[in-house]
Design a protein around this nucleic acid. Structure first.
Length: 937
RNA sequence: GCCCAGGUGGUGGAAUUGGUAGACACGUUGGACUUAAAAUCCAAUGGCCAUUGCAUGGCCGUGCGGGUUCAAGUCCCGCCCUGGGUACCA
């Protein structure tokens, strides 16, 4: 009787669901462990084999931790708001809630089939008012908070108002927008509107006019991390720059803490590096340049203040406000034209033309505050408005971009740091001695940087400062399917709703498109206003809003009084292991850390970093199959015939006149290919245009396909979905095979063929416990030494491997174990019972069945992880590889406790050794106990 | 361009601390069972070479070229290639 996985897997999945086997609560008797998967967006396509990879790994780890006595929080839910459902709604009129619900149902069915140990009672969905109430609540807290740079922490806005009443903003050091100084008298004399407008410069959630990434195709604004190379990440539509009034989150306030926090967490170095680059901290100086014949000064940011004497021109970004003011009449026309061109260019065009050097002279001159030299002011779009001050001092000798620009427009280049050859290119390195630089001459770069900063601070023309590349997160979307803002407008001024009005539910609209006047879809909602009749905000929140704090809500998901209780947060604290894709490096993982730090400042959460350990699973790539069509025909040639001549008959059949005709490769559906051999009948049925296809086969009458490793995608016909595999091989096999493919963090191709090896293993494993008639065959005899050794070797290996998330090698260890135990014909309970527990994280269904058959109740999920006992694996002898001059020549079995002198003697006396010694006296013999013996002759 | 990760059989991969390279599995080949197929089981399987009684031995071999060491897939230097991040960030 073969192992009937279909029946058994179904049985235990139902059992776990009915008994709520994985329901958890706070239990102070046990240590907590929180294992989290990244929130999936339930797409209409369902799961392919790549998706569950991380879920399987986290499930194995969760089950392992349970066996180790931990109280494991392992939840799952849905990031249910999002563009695809809404795009579909626009096309079909189908409400996105309906599509979303349907997709979630399908997702859940697929997840259930794989046998995950989630506590489904904790499921959350971002589009559920019970959930998004707390997304809105957090937004209100952000709105009512400001960031105190002194304390490097968020504070309630009231503390700021009190300060304004007393001292104005003269003493305030806050993360804020660009705002002039004002006194207490000013503040107190202002009306509410002006006070509210002023506060808006300080709030952590604020409304302002910003240059945004506008995606006309999607009809919405996008955040920086949602745009890549001028196209939207979702959908790949072009993005243009546009000035719009938008809600933003002041993420930049936390830049330093977001950077520092990376030192505390156990994440991969590459992921931390991506975040560091994204935050982009650079230290330098801010320097004020006077403008000749003008009142105003222009402030520039530089990381190389030491090169100040080498500044031979200045460049302003086209958007810089001073361009308008300083341009001389005779240059006005050309500058205006240039600015207009630069502003209207899409991000895409600008990037495409990076190599092209453009710019325009304004006719004005700036005065170098140290040398008093006059330098020309140019406007050019290689300087970005959004970084630093939007103006630079150009030092062509030591900056490659300035060098190219100076060369192109014939501007002088002055070397101020020795070490390069400025006739050939700029010398950008921070090494060398200062020259041509007044009081800096003779200093090295790092000393000169310090000296310059001291000098400009002393003269009051600048100061040392730090700049970040990180931008505030634009938080409004002109879309329907997202969280409404808990904001209303009174006389055009935004106010937050009071918390008791939450959740502010998403209203019904009759169309999901923007209005005729270009307002977002919520403007179509009837009575979209407060009880008092004030209009509500019509933008909605972006995708990352709901996912920024979901891990907190899982701790206490049904709480209707609070986001989560104090008791829950103090018990569960943070995520111990977080598994998900690297694609969230600059989006979700940045926002969630920001969200968490903010709630930490307010005293709601207890750990400053939300995700202690984070692992990025690799991508599963598709393995496409390729067929070769003879050009201009409907005849396909087998891959192994590509290098041989066609026969006369074949040429006639295909209607071609050459022995080696040209072929066009084409993707064939991997589901009609087995082991790279095409099912030609299925191929003819696959598509109508192939119904008459002819084949040129190999000697064995087979059509062999080529293959290609590429992205798993519908259009490449290489998608493999888990449902079919589970139907054919079972969930336990799928789980183990996904792990067996290779290291969790590596990208690797999917090859369905290999699954049969794991399938064979599962059945072999089953046979260990059964006789040929399928009856349980487990005996109570004392196991032999050999059997104990196999078991304990496996326990040690598997435990070690799980701890370091090396799941692929653990699967190998199980295979080796099953091979050895079946060779030993072991039927002993004392071996097989712990083995069933040991494998249960990987193959929970078969383990549960065996566990019950062995007479245990309740679930194997709460058994005890078998304890490794060293004494069973200790050996007395070791089979030493004996090398001569580093080359292994033979093996020699010797007792482990043999003294080195005796080992030497034994080696030299060994008959195999004579040939290598050849009568010479060995120079040296290296003996590494339990490793190797090396003889140097 | 810059930053990061990685290159091991026909394939996925193993070798955790410098110590027997290729575990485990797929594929391939041969064999057993079967009327046949499937399933299962057994054996071989990095390349080259030599002798041959199923066996024995030699040389080469972890992207390429150097180096350190008794010993290098692993450490150091230089180069090549692949994947990812980022892109005038001053």
């Amino acid at each position: 009787m073969e192992y009937n996985f279909r029946e058994i897997e179904k049985k235990w999945q139902n059992y776990w669901l009915e008994k709520k086997s994985f329901k958890v609560g706070i239990d102070h008797q046990k240590p907590k462990y929180y294992v989290l998967d990244m929130f999936p967006y339930p797409s209409g396509a369902g799961l392919h084999v790549g998706h569950p990879l991380g879920y399987i790994a986290s499930d194995i780890f969760s089950r392992y931790k349970r066996l180790k006595g931990y109280n494991v929080l392992h939840p799952m839910g849905y990031d249910a708001y999002g563009l695809p459902a809404e795009q579909y709604a626009i096309q079909t009129g189908q409400h996105p809630a309906i599509t979303t619900e349907r997709n979630i149902k399908r997702y859940r069915e697929q997840l259930d089939q794989i046998g995950f140990s989630y506590d489904w009672d904790r499921e959350v969905r971002t589009c559920d008012p019970v959930y998004y109430k707390w997304t809105q609540w957090t937004f209100i807290q952000l709105f009512h908070s400001w960031f105190n740079n002194h304390l490097q922490a968020a504070e309630p806005i009231n503390t700021l108002i009190e300060e304004f009443e007393k001292n104005g903003n003269t003493k305030v050091n806050a993360a804020c927008g660009e705002i002039d100084k004002f006194t207490a008298e000013n503040w107190n004399s202002w009306d509410e509107k002006q006070q509210q407008e002023t506060l808006m410069y300080y709030r952590l959630a604020y409304l302002s006019d910003t240059w945004v990434n506008w995606c006309p195709e999607l009809g919405t604004v996008l955040a920086n991390d949602e745009v890549k190379e001028g196209y939207s990440v979702r959908g790949g539509h072009p993005v243009v720059r546009k000035l719009m009034k938008q809600w933003s989150l002041r993420v930049t306030a936390y830049a330093e803490r977001l950077l520092q926090g990376l030192e505390e967490v156990d994440w991969s170095e590459s992921l931390k590096e991506i975040q560091r680059n994204w935050i982009g901290k650079s230290e330098g100086a801010s320097v004020n340049f006077k403008v000749s014949h003008h009142e105003e000064e222009i402030e520039v940011f530089t990381t190389r203040p030491d090169t100040l004497f080498g500044a031979t021109f200045m460049v302003l970004a086209p958007e810089h406000e001073m361009v308008e003011k300083i341009t001389k009449p005779e240059h006005r026309e050309k500058v205006d034209e240039y600015v207009k061109m630069a502003k209207n260019r899409s991000e895409r065009e600008r990037m495409a033309e990076v190599k092209k050097i453009t710019g325009e002279f304004t006719g004005a001159y700036a005065i170098n505050p140290l040398s008093n030299e006059e330098i020309p002011i140019w406007v050019a779009d290689y300087v970005l408005a959004g970084y630093g001050t939007g103006a630079i001092m150009a030092v062509p000798a030591h900056d490659s971009r300035d060098y190219a620009f100076a060369n192109h427009f014939n501007i002088p280049i002055r070397e101020v740091v020795s070490g390069g050859d400025i006739s050939r290119g700029s010398y950008d390195a921070k090494e060398g001695t200062l020259i041509n630089s007044g009081f800096l001459n003779g200093m090295d770069v790092s000393k000169a940087i310090k000296a310059t900063i001291d000098k400009i601070e002393e003269l009051g023309v600048g100061y040392g400062t730090v700049n970040f590349r990180l931008r505030d997160a634009i938080f409004s979307r002109q879309r329907y399917w997202g969280e409404p803002f808990p904001i209303y407008y009174k006389d055009g001024i935004p106010y937050a709703l009071s918390e008791d009005k939450l959740p502010l539910e998403l209203p019904e609209v009759e169309s999901f498109l923007p209005t005729e006047t270009g307002e977002p879809p919520l403007a179509r909602a009837k009575n979209w206003e407060t009880e008092e009749g004030y209009p509500l905000e019509t933008n909605t929140m972006p995708g990352f809003a709901g996912s920024s704090g979901y891990y907190l809500r899982y701790m206490d998901p049904r709480n209707d009084k609070e986001y989560f209780s104090k008791e829950a947060i103090e018990y569960w604290r943070d995520v111990d292991l977080y598994i998900g894709g690297i694609e969230h490096a600059t989006g979700h993982l940045m926002y969630a850390r920001f969200w968490n730090k903010f709630l930490y400042d307010l005293g709601y959460v207890v750990e400053e970093e939300p995700f202690k350990k984070l692992v990025n699973q690799g991508m599963i790539q598709g393995r496409s199959n390729i067929v070769y069509r003879l050009k201009g025909t409907n005849t396909f040639i087998s891959k192994n015939r590509l290098d041989t001549d066609l026969t006369d008959e074949e040429m006639k059949k295909a209607g071609v006149s050459e022995r080696r005709p040209e072929v066009i490769p084409m993707h064939a559906d991997v589901n009609i290919v087995d082991n790279d051999v095409l099912d030609t009948a299925a191929f003819r049925n696959w598509r109508q245009d192939l119904a008459e296809a002819q084949f040129i086969l190999d000697d064995e009458g087979k059509y062999v396909c080529g293959y290609e490793i590429e992205k798993m995608s519908k259009s490449l016909y290489n998608v493999v979905n888990p449902d079919d595999l589970i139907a054919n091989f079972g969930a336990d096999t799928l789980r183990m095979y996904e792990m067996f493919l290779g290291p969790l963090t590596d990208s690797k191709p999917w090859d369905t063929k290999g699954i049969e090896g794991v399938y064979r293993f599962i059945r072999k494993f089953w046979r260990l416990y059964h006789d040929n008639n399928g009856n349980l065959n487990v005996t109570e005899e004392e196991p032999t030494k050999e059997e104990f050794k196999v078991l304990h070797k496996t326990i040690q290996k598997v435990e070690d491997d799980i701890e370091r998330l090396s799941f692929n090698t653990a699967v190998s260890a199980f295979m080796i174990c099953a091979n050895e135990l079946s060779d030993l014909k072991c039927t002993k309970r004392a071996i097989l019972e712990p083995l069933a527990v040991l494998i249960s994280p990987y193959a929970p269904h078969i383990a549960e069945e065996l566990w019950h058959k062995l007479g245990h109740r309740p679930s194997v999920a709460y058994a005890e992880f078998p304890e490794f006992k060293k004494e069973y694996v200790i050996e007395n002898t070791f089979n030493y590889p004996v090398s001569f001059n580093g080359k292994k020549r033979f093996e020699l079995e010797l007792p482990l406790d043999m003294p080195k002198e005796e080992i030497e003697k034994a080696v030299l006396e060994a008959p195999e050794a004579q040939k290598w010694i050849e009568g010479k006296t060995p120079k040296k013999i290296i003996i590494v106990p339990k490793r190797i013996i090396n003889v140097v002759v």
